[in-house]
Amino acid sequence: MSNLKQAARRIIEEVYGQGRVEVLDELCHPDYVGHDPLVGDADLQGVKAYVRLLRACFPNLEARILGLYVEGNTAIIWWWMEGNLARRLLDVEPQGQRIHLQGITVAEFEEGKIIEDSSEWDTFGYLVQLGLVKPLGPMARASGERDGSGLSQS
């Protein structure tokens, strides 16, 4: 169990936090696949490319583990990341935007190596922070009254 915890910790701290993509070769199974709400499914080379892009766009990216749980061959990592946009990303010009991310990654291990992981994080909040989308804001009923749900009953 401690080896799985250490591997999960290294993914966040060394790979994302320090940009050391070569660590993935050590920690991931050759048949590894990752699932992410923004980039979709990726093999090991795809994840390396994504980390390189992320680190290029956010060179001061900080990554921290908020919680780490292991049961059997599964690790659940609750993580936080923050950094300033320093390079054009998704057609957004850098203006020093400070981006905050928080999410959970569920990693499955086989023979001590990560074979598959799925991340869920506030992708919508990320796009809002980049200025690519706007939240809906308050939603009022047609009569102007609110029922607490924020939805109109029209």
Rank of each mutant, 00 (worst) to 15 (best):
residue 108 E to I: 11
residue 91 D to W: 12
residue 129 Q to M: 06
residue 32 Y to C: 02
residue 115 I to Y: 04
residue 44 L to A: 00
residue 124 F to E: 06
residue 137 G to M: 03
residue 112 G to W: 12
residue 150 G to M: 03
residue 38 L to I: 11
residue 12 I to S: 06
residue 108 E to P: 08
residue 89 L to T: 07
residue 134 K to T: 14
residue 137 G to T: 03
residue 50 Y to W: 13
residue 43 D to C: 10
residue 56 A to T: 12
residue 25 D to K: 12
residue 70 V to L: 02
residue 118 S to C: 09
residue 146 R to T: 12
residue 135 P to M: 06
residue 127 L to R: 04
residue 109 F to P: 06
residue 45 Q to W: 11
residue 130 L to S: 09
residue 153 Q to A: 09
residue 67 G to M: 07
residue 130 L to Y: 07
residue 3 N to Q: 15
residue 60 N to Y: 02
residue 80 W to N: 06
residue 61 L to R: 12
residue 55 R to Y: 02
residue 2 S to R: 14
residue 56 A to I: 04
residue 68 L to W: 04
residue 15 V to G: 04
residue 36 D to N: 14
residue 76 I to N: 06
residue 120 E to T: 13
residue 101 L to H: 04
residue 55 R to A: 03
residue 12 I to K: 06
residue 87 R to M: 09
residue 89 L to I: 08
residue 147 D to R: 14
residue 42 A to L: 14
residue 110 E to A: 13
residue 44 L to E: 00
residue 4 L to W: 07
residue 7 A to P: 05
residue 50 Y to N: 11
residue 40 G to S: 02
residue 56 A to W: 09
residue 66 L to N: 14
residue 86 A to T: 08
residue 95 Q to W: 03
residue 52 R to P: 00
residue 19 G to W: 05
residue 128 V to R: 15
residue 119 S to I: 03
residue 126 Y to F: 15
residue 18 Q to E: 15
residue 111 E to P: 02
residue 109 F to S: 05
residue 86 A to Y: 09
residue 127 L to V: 01
residue 116 E to P: 00
residue 64 R to W: 00
residue 15 V to L: 03
residue 69 Y to V: 13
residue 68 L to K: 10
residue 84 N to S: 15
residue 82 E to M: 09
